[in-house]
Amino acid sequence: MTTWLPEVTVAEGQTEFDAVFGLRPDLFDAYRDFESVFWTHELLDASILDACRARCAQVLRAEGASTDPIAADDPTSALAVCLVLAEQFVMDPHGVTAEMREAVVAHLGDAGLVALVEALAVFDGFTRFRTILAVEPANGPR
């Protein structure tokens, strides 16, 4: 998949996502600053962030999404409960139950739940961004 946007030229060392979003450089800089904070400030464990991003891509049937199952070995683990909430977030956020929220809070606290939902908003929104603009998959700006 390559974007249909006619003005996009991908420079060496750039991803197509960089080139497309770079059409709005001020927004892209602010986006990268926001998106990267989840990893640079360790708002959540990187393995949870990576797994939830990959699961969002699967649920949204994004180009390049992994075909391997994304699941936690222990169904009571932090990763497992985050993945449950991530799936529901993408499919229908009104279906996120108190049990789903409380399971995440039990592992990560209220601030962890907020970080997860913010990260999911980024993953969900920018997976849709890539799909609509036919932007090749990238693993984020980290």
Binding site: L27, A30, F34
Partner: peptide, 24 residues
């Protein structure tokens, strides 16, 4: 809002959201 529970993320989100509305 509850976003304030993550101040580092909130600060950066507000910059992004502000740009989205004020430029473009």
């Amino acid at each position: 809002s509850p976003l304030a529970l993550q101040p580092e993320a909130l600060q950066r989100f507000l910059v992004l959201y502000g740009l989205l509305w004020s430029h473009g």
